[in-house]
Amino acid sequence: MKNMQNEEINKQEFNITLYTENHVGLLSQVASIFTRRKINIESLNTSPSEVEGIYRFNVVIIETDELMNKLIRHLEKLNGVIKAYYHSNNDVIWQEMALYKMPTSIIEEQLNVERLLRRYGARVVVIRKDYTVFEASGHREETDNLITLLQPYGLIEFVRSARVAIIKKSDGFNSKLKEFERLNPLPDAYSEHFLNEITKGLIV
């Protein structure tokens, strides 16, 4: 029981970045790595990467650092996954995009709403007689706050995208991929950061 509590405390949000080939069924295989360990996926996004033909997954889960190491290696083992990384929220720049549908009449009449929208940097996407759609992006708390604030003014509908995250210390995937394309990649192509960590404390 004590262990379980510690584990809960040690859990935090992690951003997983996968570079993959574009295969039918890969999404379900990636998902299964989490489901077989009963891990919930908080957010998932796939999109093309900067390299043609290579896709990029952004997955957010809440886990311990220790388990992340194992998960990453299992993900990388999947056929179709070229490279897997994981980062804490501090190591990435991330955004989520949200759409808010509001009654147009309220926006015309209520000055407060306008202020709110300005404060949150929301943009108007569509204006119709009956409703207006705003778009805002930011961290989860920011887009969440805006919901709470708009709710009293008759928020009609709300939707939020998955998280997209850029790794702060990344030089992109172009050069790495070239290494993988070779039959005998150089050791640099493998970022075995956990191995380096172990080296530090070792007998040498």
């Binding site: 080939e21 070229i82 993988f180 039959l183 050791p187 493998y190 191995l195 080296t199 007998i203 040498v204």
Partner: peptide, 24 residues
């Protein structure tokens, strides 16, 4: 077939770990 880009059948051997293992 002898190469697939998203599949690495075996990791690269790192001589430094062999040395550390031998020392242990």
């Amino acid at each position: 077939c002898d190469h697939i880009r998203s599949y690495r059948p075996k990791p690269i051997v790192r001589p430094s770990y062999i040395e550390q293992a031998a020392e242990l």
